[in-house]
């Protein structure tokens, strides 16, 4: 049996969670909502994160457009995702929600713009 303490990062409440792993059985205590339990299970089995950054814009009113992975990606892939984001370029205009990278670093997750940038 393994016991892990963690802080739920789903929302700013930051509930202190205790995860008990007994073979396949995982029990979570300390959560105030069901999302806490889901988070804890995911965090011990296959932790994921949303990655946010920015991408260079050609010909826009500003030099960069902020982006995020559309959904969370495996934590171990963060730097691979960043590598592709850093290499990416996009032409203005960009609309919020536009796909900037289709399948980022083999995660199957899109990187999308989180703001709009007009053409200069």
């Amino acid at each position: 049996m393994e016991v892990r303490e963690m802080i739920c990062i789903n929302c700013p409440m930051g509930c202190p969670l205790t995860v008990t792993m007994n073979g396949d059985r995982i029990t979570v205590t300390g959560n105030t909502c069901p999302r806490g339990a889901d988070y804890a299970k995911k965090e011990v089995l296959s932790p994921t994160r949303i990655v946010t950054s920015s991408v260079r814009v050609n010909g826009g009113t500003i030099a960069r457009v902020s982006v995020k992975t559309k959904t969370d990606i495996p934590k171990g892939k963060i730097f691979d995702v960043m590598k592709e984001i850093r290499a990416a370029r996009v032409d203005a205009p960009v609309k919020m929600g536009d796909v900037v990278i289709e399948d980022c670093a083999g995660t199957g997750v899109e990187v999308i713009a989180t703001k709009s940038v007009a053409r200069a």
């Binding site: 990062i9 700013p12 930051g14 963060i78």
Partner: peptide
Amino acid sequence: LKRNIVQCLDD
């Protein structure tokens, strides 16, 4: 915020 310590530092 606690969540920021986890996902910005601990990670």
